[in-house]
Amino acid sequence: MPAWFSLFHPFFVSVTEIKHDAAKKELQVSCRIFYDDLENALKTHYKTPVDILHPANRKSVDALVADYLGKHLLISVDGKTVVVKYLGYQIEEEAAWCYLVAEAVPAAKQVQVKDDILYNEHAEQINMIHVIVGGERKSTKLDNPAAAASFSF
């Protein structure tokens, strides 16, 4: 992709993948978000300078990302909200890959997701969600302001 793409990307989309690992009894979650959009959201939301690419203090940036995702990505399994723990992020091309895990999830028949990542920043924001349980993959697309999805396995 051209270098200018990260500055002027013409669409606003995030991709969240939630995979149930039955052997580990956990949900493994990854979110791919354009890093410039995430950085701008953090600056606006927390009213502080943020540099995701070259953070002066990685722990403080991680704390902001963890708090932001904790408010904008909520997961329930079989009617119970799960505690999702932020693990960290890495930059790959124009994207920030954010990793999270929910432990003590032995099974997942019904997965509900509330995802309004970047909705406050972009009226055109689209959030793609993929959920994988028992090797079966189900996906949906949420167009701002729609923020809720439910998956049955």
Rank of each mutant, 00 (worst) to 15 (best):
Q125Y: 06
I33S: 00
I129L: 12
F34G: 05
V61A: 01
R137W: 03
F5K: 15
F151I: 04
L74T: 10
D36S: 04
F151W: 05
L64P: 04
A123N: 02
K19C: 07
V61F: 02
F11K: 01
C31I: 11
H130I: 10
S30L: 14
T48A: 12
P10D: 14
A41C: 06
G134M: 02
V29D: 13
H72R: 01
V83Y: 08
E92V: 15
V82T: 08
L118F: 08
L74Y: 00
I132S: 06
P49F: 05
R58E: 12
S30I: 13
V83C: 02
P145A: 07
P49N: 10
V131H: 01
P49I: 06
H130W: 04
G79N: 02
E39R: 04
A63D: 12
I18L: 09
F151Q: 04
R32A: 09
A96T: 13
N57P: 07
E39C: 06
L74I: 10
Y46N: 06
A102L: 12
R32G: 04
D116E: 14
A104P: 00
K71I: 07
H54K: 10
E94I: 11
A147L: 14
E92H: 14
K80T: 12
N120D: 14
V15T: 13
S60L: 13
F8N: 11
K47S: 12
P106T: 01
V84M: 09
L73C: 01
L38T: 13
K85M: 05
G134E: 07
V133S: 01
F12W: 11
K138N: 04
K47A: 11
C98G: 07
Y99Q: 13
V15R: 06
N127W: 02
K25W: 03
P106N: 11
V111T: 02
A63L: 10
